[in-house]
Write a protein that binds this DNA or RNA. Structure first.
Lengths: 328, 328
DNA sequence: ATTCATTTTGCATACGTATGCAAACACAAC
DNA sequence: GTTGTGTTTGCATACGTATGCAAAATGAAT
């Protein structure tokens, strides 16, 4: 049994109409009389006919495909992002061509796959693009949005949480509580998220005359766990640990617990993202909630509105602090 | 600036060859002289030409697309699965059309999206299909594989861990250690994974004259946490808790810790999956390691070999027990 | 019954590619 | 130079759909 393809032509034959008419039945807004519409739909139903998206895309240039590239990391935050993206895009009639990438930068080859399929837009999450790739995409006139990343040298849209001001608010809380011994554990240094959270946090506190000890992490649980463990072993148990994201904070939190340090009494721990795990009773991590849904909405909005391309836009959303049991 | 489409035709014009020749340059195994190949490639490079996958798929019936459907749950296990699938499929030249579904059963509508794009195969992870959807897919001659699920009433391939025998081995361990007070926390009852793990575990132990207390969970951390917490509050602290998956076991583990019960001395905890988190120092969960990579390989293998369709195949792989710090 | 405006339909073509077939070519052997 | 063999190329067509245009059908108004 070979591949059975039911084409509009066959439906047309059985329904005694032309192929054009069949096409029109499946094209919203086209002119077909109700009588023939029903006739065609009946035959189509019987034959299990479905318009071929490839042929359709070929002629209309509307593929209804969106390319989504994501870096392969452990952070559950991005899994939630992925879920929300696929749901919302699907609701708008788009299908998602998905790529996991292991590199910090999306590679040419991966973008090429997107281009081959004429995706209408590309969303890059937790990764970057080289500027010549962006240029190539601009040539092809396909809009790109960086999600939760930005790079001012890149000519593409960007949607993220306003990390700097969020971190400032966290810093304000720390300052207000009069803590003095403060540690910030970074994520990967080449990410804008980590840099901005560090900047907002540190700038505010130094402006108040406070010193922030910075430990260089890499957004993994393990690294953060060991950094904290070593710090404690060396006799330094700070009053505050702010992790560049939740995973980082959880690593620190576990290290503190293992060392028998009481949280939040001896040390306060704060994260960033609000992943599901952070609300688990064992952790009950106080953290900054990123407005994921809203961020996704904005991203999709940006891509849809691209026609009136008034240049690359940068959207920053706020989010809010949620106090659970690792702060007082 | 409208969409700029560089077609094989334009390349042909500039290279002074026919469109056919350009096509042949980009078709592996086609006959082109080295001289013209270079000439064409040079022009193609300049114009940034790329073959259009839609047009190509239309004529060859080879779309190089695979549909991947996954249920939207919290379990990090499936995120790892997703990562491995996309990587391995990409390596074989396939692109992934991705769908998150919220229902236990993949819906007709979601499958239709796959069909529109002429996917060559469909992988369903952590969800099921209705039998008439399967029938429709068979009509269209497109192979389906259930990953980590099976249903003997369904005429499609299936790849999973041999949950029954794995659970038996775990039961054997429990029996050997002479534990008597044994609890199993289920996952969702309508999943074959939970049913099989329960069956293997319980059957073995009852055959040895032991009784297993079964608590009905739903594969979420929260549910398992509260089940365990209540059990303890009611005065029952078992010697063994086996969770239907890691998330379940972790919920139980945290409830035990919160209640001040020493693990593994008073209670032993065992999970299933070996998600990344289970190796975190705080948890150090003893669990059954599913051979994900191998499972993915088998799945892809099954889909590729489908031509010699010798009926639906069921593959079960073994995996192994890893002892960390929640068992003795 | 005739005219006219409006809706519905079919014809023909285009989208960008792959491929069977035959023509053109290259090259070697005589 | 002729023949023959093997390779390279172009021509024409097909894939399944959408759409401008003109023909046909409908129906209202006279």
């Amino acid at each position: 049994m070979e591949k059975k393809v039911v084409s509009a032509m066959e439906v047309a034959r059985l329904a005694n109409v032309s192929q054009s008419t069949v096409s029109r039945v499946f094209t919203p807004g086209a002119s077909v009389s109700e009588k023939t519409r029903q006739k065609v739909l009946k035959v189509a139903e019987e034959l299990n006919y479905q318009p071929n998206a490839l042929a359709r895309g070929l002629i209309t240039k509307k593929t209804n495909l969106v390319g989504l590239a994501m870096k392969d990391i452990q952070n559950p935050f991005y899994h939630e992002v992925l879920g929300i993206f696929t749901k919302k895009l699907r609701a708008k009639g788009y299908s998602v061509l998905f790529v996991y990438t292991e590199n910090e930068e999306i590679q040419q080859e991966e973008i090429n796959h997107f281009l081959e399929y004429n995706v209408e837009a590309i969303i890059v999450t937790d990764a970057l693009l080289s500027s010549n790739v962006v240029k190539k995409l601009q040539n092809n006139n396909i809009p790109v949005t960086l999600f939760n990343r930005y790079d001012k040298n890149l000519q593409c849209h960007s949607v993220s949480c306003d990390n700097i001001s969020a971190a400032k608010e966290i810093a304000a809380y720390v300052y207000e509580k009069n803590y003095k011994d403060i540690v910030f554990i970074t994520g990967k240094l080449n990410t804008s998220t980590s840099r901005d959270r560090q900047k907002g946090f540190t700038d505010f506190l130094t402006s108040k005359g406070l010193n922030v000890t910075t430990l260089e992490g890499d957004y993994t649980y393990d690294k953060s766990f060991h950094l904290t463990k070593n710090m404690i072993k060396n006799g330094h148990t700070p009053e505050v640990i702010f992790g560049a994201n939740d995973i980082t904070a959880l690593g620190a939190l576990d290290a503190l617990k293992e060392a028998g340090i009481s949280v939040p009494d001896e040390t306060v721990v704060i994260g960033f993202d609000d992943i599901k795990m952070s609300s688990w009773p064992h952790y009950a991590l106080s953290t900054w909630v990123q407005p994921i849904e809203q961020m996704v909405d904005e991203t999709i909005h940006l891509l849809a509105l691209d026609s009136d391309s008034s240049g690359p836009q940068t959207v920053k959303l706020k989010g809010h602090f949620i106090h659970r049991e690792t702060t007082k």
